[in-house]
Design a protein around this nucleic acid. Structure first.
Lengths: 384, 384
DNA sequence: GTGGGTGATGTGACCGGTCACCTCTCCTCC
DNA sequence: GGAGGAGAGGTGACCGGTCACATCACCCAC
């Protein structure tokens, strides 16, 4: 209530320590020993109801907050996590981060972040060590190779949860991990495209350091179920740029009428490439993305995509970590929020008489190409 | 070289402390006192050359790393920062974060992140306190109201650098802050649009809790210089959704032929709204964005926008913080990387005979509207 | 020759928690 | 009625750094 809180803050070692309220102050106020206060703030069962309440009252009155540094030093529960990932501006990395942050905040935990830049093993080991040191617990965004490599550098005794693309990949056995099961959604998306009449669906995959992604498996399963031989999946990058580059190649192949892109940025790049090549989306070619970034519905055409609940993924990862630290190390792996197909405008039936010939000359990025008129209205909004 | 490093890691207070190498181990190995080691790792001048080298050798050999917690506890230099901001998935917030992370990593600092969710003063105060506690130093992303409010809650003795929109706004005097001076670029963008022949340029602003943003001032300056009375700036949000909503209104006003949007997502929303209203970009209406998000060049039309070097902004903020902590509190405010107009496709001359009538009926988001053909090729790529 | 710098180093307390271990009380059971 | 436990609480050391202060050698000036 009163709670004047003073800060002992200084980057450099100045000497203006302010007398922050400590466990012993609380003890004095409550008429108990400092150890009893420690027991109370750690929910030890060995404190009587009356004493606990007295201590809690004192804590409240003095505005006491346990000091993270002291606690860490003394080997207590550290109460903070470091997230390790290679990127923060990609939505697929930023959104889970947001989820972890929210969950950690709710739990009174601190959250740190460390980026992975180099793939060099020594650097990687170093980055992991630096990440472990302040927090003692890790959440690794292991969607990409950097994250997967980092995961391998983490000593087994460090409480760690990995966010991964697929459970089958080279995750250490027993290492708790969370993922979004995109198999069903990828399958559904592919079936949706086949259902629109496409002879086949091409897949422009996000990078995968191990075998295949779940979304790739779902895509393949749908094709096989429809007795279509899956074309080779194209290995792409993470960015719109990579989608654009791949799209430029795909645009030249007139058999390509439907593309399932590895994420929404890639899908945007593909659409741009098609646009430049004079192939209209969705009239000539259908494009479906992955993620449902917040701005995907404002593309023209609005992107049909598979929504992923990344934020919840982050929250689940954090809670997994909590569970791991509470109940020993008895946490296996766990699937989390389902993905969901969001139908918008970027996919439609294939062109009537097979793919028609290119009608505009492919122009390099930066010149405004023509856009032909079009006139039908399938593709209902299925949003929200 | 050898450097076996052990981790004293546990979330819950288990007792498997591993004997991490401490300052006293190093002292023993080097045949000096622990205090001398402390002096060496803190670059104290009061150590002889020979001793310093012996200690450094021992440090290297044992793979010693100072313990952050112990250091913080003892009141030494904390060597970590917390970034406080309201969002991580918006590019304008994520990119500076990335810059801070990189700079902090290079300096051997830890980086934490805390999100601001509630605008409630009590919650805000609480969030700030929690952010200060573990690191002792703050970087506040104060582009939006939440950040600005947080800034006001920070006690003056806490080393803090603010990233702000404009220096004139309600920043506490003397509080070091960094910003990108967008005045010139906003002016240039507006002049560019006027130069294309537009009678006026409308501005759809990002939220600003204080008077005006620099970009708004630049926009106004260009108009005034051209003897055009600036129309009222529209207050928007941060997202594509908000741009879309505002765009729907703008589309109805036939005098609007050029829009300077507060950021690229807003610009996308505006373009979408125009598209639905049957107003072609750039033929009927020109749209210019702000930020140059990595995918902006893949929009159709590719977005003409003002590039901001957010990453460098983050780095500058961090270095400012370092400087602040080293050389007392003698850091005033400082302008940082210039913004730059990137010309792509989304802006062009206004329609010949004044804005032509709407040719398609405005349709709600989700129905695929027509796109008319178009045929000219201004708008050169000025990219990279 | 002695007092007083100054530069290099050592000593011990301390930061604010936790841990291991001890004490004291009260209850139960043989 | 005394051994044995369980429950509640206290005591002091300790984590790994830093700080304030003491020490010691050495040089210079009076």
């Amino acid at each position: 209530m009163t709670g004047h809180i003073t800060h002992a803050s200084h980057l450099s070692g100045n000497s203006d320590r302010s007398p922050a309220v400590s466990i012993r102050d609380v003890a004095r106020a409550a008429g108990v020993s400092h150890q009893t206060v420690s027991r109370v703030i750690n929910d030890s069962p060995k404190v009587s109801r009356a004493t606990r309440e007295a201590v809690l009252a004192a804590i409240d009155q003095l505005g006491f907050r346990p000091n993270r540094a002291a606690r860490a030093l003394a080997g207590g529960p550290v109460q903070s996590v470091t997230v390790l990932g290679s990127n923060t501006s990609l939505y697929g990395f930023a959104a889970p981060l947001e989820g972890v942050e929210e969950a950690s905040r709710d739990a009174g935990f601190g959250m740190g972040f460390r980026a992975l830049e180099s793939l060099n093993p020594a650097d990687m080991r170093d980055a992991v060590e630096r990440a472990i040191e302040p927090a003692g617990a890790l959440i690794v965004i292991a969607f990409d190779q950097a994250g997967a490599m980092a995961l391998e550098c983490v000593p087994p005794e460090v409480p760690t949860v990995a966010m991964i693309q697929a459970p089958s990949s080279a995750t250490l056995p027993g290492r708790p991990s969370v993922w979004i099961d995109e198999f069903a959604a990828a399958k559904e998306a592919t079936e949706y495209l086949l259902g629109l009449g496409h002879a086949t669906v091409h897949h422009l995959a996000i990078p995968s350091w191990s075998a295949a992604t779940r979304r790739m498996e779902g895509w393949r399963a749908a094709l096989e179920q429809a007795a279509v031989r899956p074309p080779n999946a194209l290995q792409g990058g993470w960015t719109a740029q990579s989608g654009y580059e791949a799209g430029c190649k795909l645009a030249k192949d007139s058999r390509v009428t439907a593309v399932l892109a590895g994420n929404d940025e890639i899908a945007l790049g593909v659409m741009r490439a098609m646009h430049e090549a004079g192939r209209r989306v969705p009239d000539d070619i259908s494009v479906v993305g992955f993620d449902d970034v917040p701005y995907a519905r404002f593309f023209s055409p609005a992107l049909t995509t598979v929504r992923q609940d990344f934020k919840t993924l982050g929250k689940v990862a954090f809670h997994k970590l909590l569970e791991l630290s509470h109940s020993g190390r008895t946490a296996p792996t766990l699937a989390s929020p389902q993905a969901q197909l969001i139908i918008r405008e970027s996919a439609g039936p294939p062109p009537r008489s097979g793919p028609r010939g290119r009608q505009a000359i492919a122009t390099p990025l930066g010149t405004r190409p023509d856009t032909g008129p079009n006139s039908h209205d399938e593709g209902e909004e299925n949003d929200r």
